[in-house]
Simulated scan of single mutants.
Amino acid sequence: MDRRAFLAATGAALLARPAVVQARARQWQEVSLAEAGFRPDAGERIDRAFANGELNGLHGLVVLRHGKIALERYFAGADEIWGDSRGVIAFNADELHDLRSVSKSIVGLVYGIALADGLVPKPEAPLLASFPDYPDLAADPERQRLKVAHVLTMTMGLVWDESLPYSDPRNSEIAMEYAPDRYRFVLDRPIARPPGEAWTYSGGATALLGHLIAKGSGKRLGEFAHERLFAPLGIDRFAWTNGLDGREAAASGLRLRPRDLAAIGQLLLDKGSHAGRQIVPAGWLEQCLTAQTQTKDGLGYGYQWYLGRNRAGEPWFGAFGNGGQRLVVTPRQQLVIAITAGNYNKPGGERMSAKLANEFIFGALAQ
């Protein structure tokens, strides 16, 4: 049973379907595989692999090289919106798709935009100073050590466990959804270790960031993201699923099209600038994409972004989401890979996307 099905089965109202917001569409240039430096049969190899069952669950793929679309594929498959089944969808370039935890990384970018406007606290600021409604928590000497930076890097040191199935009410994200106050729930978790000592995957951390953006801007998270990130990038359609409290599920509710996810990746390559406009401050982007800590898998982790190296030793940064959602950017190769998939809540569901990126994209580079 998945997250939404569990909430419904236990008597909660279904989470609100997201409203679709529109702006002015971005125009993309396309280039041949050979011109982009790929083997000319790279697309055919992906088609055969999907037909042979090697890439089960793949829904969409967009590959950019030097800012142009070199490869784009869409396939039919079962899909859902945060656990609410949509049946089998014949995907195409205009179909929105759940990004799940890729949402976290995009919220990290939006936070930097709000910070440049003076709307949210700096990373070094005491966290609980931004939550005056919880004076009892602020009076705790151990919690006084929490900084906004610990939220950005998921090193808060509080007990949080999303390894349990979403059918289990002990899963911290499910428990957060049911809490009368999701932000107090996150901040009131038992202290496991000093802040900054270790990385613990936490959708609750991103929920706090989303709240700070909304509070500081006086707008809903999706509205602010639309005005300051999506619309300036030419992302003309998006949706953001709400949690039970009616606010956007900052950690996992964003829905974009693969091309638009790729546009986020290209923005990173372009140091936060698009069409002559600085959308994300370059300094903030550098902080996001600098390893501040290390995950349990040995990857670097910045401000809501993962960092690593591919088989050739080339550095990459990226974002991952339940079901195989993936955005990978390799600066040296000027390459962006955006993947959407439907392997939600399946053990090893991310392996297909890793195989696709490593074997069929990186492995197809001729130069």
Rank of each mutant, 00 (worst) to 15 (best):
residue 146 L to K: 01
residue 188 D to I: 04
residue 148 V to K: 08
residue 127 L to F: 11
residue 200 T to R: 14
residue 138 A to M: 06
residue 142 E to A: 15
residue 179 A to E: 09
residue 124 E to L: 13
residue 207 A to R: 12
residue 155 T to F: 01
residue 150 H to Y: 11
residue 200 T to N: 15
residue 198 A to F: 11
residue 189 R to C: 04
residue 133 D to V: 10
residue 191 I to N: 07
residue 203 G to N: 13
residue 180 P to Y: 03
residue 146 L to I: 01
residue 146 L to S: 01
residue 125 A to Q: 03
residue 146 L to C: 00
residue 152 L to H: 03
residue 203 G to E: 13
residue 163 S to A: 14
residue 205 A to M: 11
residue 128 L to S: 06
residue 162 E to M: 13
residue 136 D to K: 10
residue 127 L to Y: 08
residue 118 G to F: 10
residue 137 L to T: 01
residue 210 G to Y: 05
residue 154 M to F: 09
residue 193 R to E: 15
residue 120 V to T: 05
residue 160 W to T: 00
residue 165 P to I: 04
residue 136 D to T: 11
residue 178 Y to A: 13
residue 191 I to D: 09
residue 168 D to F: 06
residue 154 M to Q: 13
residue 132 P to Y: 07
residue 173 E to P: 08
residue 120 V to P: 02
residue 119 L to V: 04
residue 148 V to E: 03
residue 202 S to I: 08
residue 182 R to M: 14
residue 174 I to S: 06
residue 205 A to Y: 08
residue 140 D to C: 04
residue 142 E to K: 14
residue 162 E to L: 12
residue 192 A to R: 12
residue 148 V to P: 11
residue 126 P to K: 04
residue 151 V to A: 09
residue 172 S to K: 01
residue 120 V to D: 00
residue 130 S to L: 04
residue 164 L to H: 10
residue 162 E to P: 14
residue 143 R to Y: 03
residue 124 E to G: 12
residue 126 P to S: 05
residue 164 L to S: 08
residue 129 A to P: 10
residue 127 L to C: 10
residue 174 I to L: 15
residue 194 P to Q: 13
residue 142 E to R: 15
residue 149 A to I: 12
residue 196 G to K: 04
residue 127 L to E: 02
residue 169 P to V: 03
residue 186 V to T: 01
residue 121 P to Y: 10
residue 185 F to P: 04
residue 190 P to Q: 14
residue 157 G to S: 05
residue 192 A to V: 09
residue 133 D to I: 09
residue 193 R to N: 11
residue 130 S to K: 01
residue 179 A to K: 08
residue 151 V to H: 07
residue 204 G to L: 05
residue 119 L to I: 03
residue 127 L to N: 04
residue 134 Y to G: 00
residue 157 G to I: 01
residue 198 A to P: 07
residue 151 V to T: 12
residue 208 L to C: 05
residue 151 V to W: 13
residue 154 M to K: 06
residue 162 E to A: 12
residue 128 L to N: 07
residue 197 E to P: 08
residue 201 Y to K: 02
residue 127 L to V: 08
residue 148 V to D: 06
residue 206 T to L: 06
residue 147 K to N: 08
residue 161 D to L: 09
residue 157 G to C: 04
residue 161 D to A: 02
residue 147 K to V: 04
residue 159 V to T: 14
residue 125 A to C: 12
residue 196 G to V: 01
residue 119 L to D: 05
residue 165 P to W: 13
residue 156 M to E: 05
residue 208 L to F: 09
residue 136 D to L: 11
residue 210 G to Q: 06
residue 147 K to L: 15
residue 170 R to C: 09
residue 168 D to V: 08
residue 165 P to N: 13
residue 182 R to A: 15
residue 176 M to E: 14
residue 140 D to V: 01
residue 182 R to E: 11
residue 193 R to A: 14
residue 188 D to H: 14
residue 137 L to K: 02
residue 156 M to V: 05
residue 132 P to G: 07
residue 122 K to Y: 13
residue 176 M to F: 12
residue 129 A to F: 12
residue 121 P to Q: 08
residue 194 P to I: 06
residue 187 L to Q: 01
residue 198 A to D: 12
residue 206 T to G: 07
residue 174 I to R: 07
residue 164 L to Q: 14
residue 172 S to W: 03
residue 206 T to P: 07
residue 160 W to L: 00
residue 177 E to M: 12
residue 191 I to Q: 14
residue 186 V to N: 02
residue 179 A to D: 10
residue 181 D to K: 09
residue 129 A to M: 13
residue 186 V to K: 07
residue 180 P to R: 00
residue 120 V to I: 11
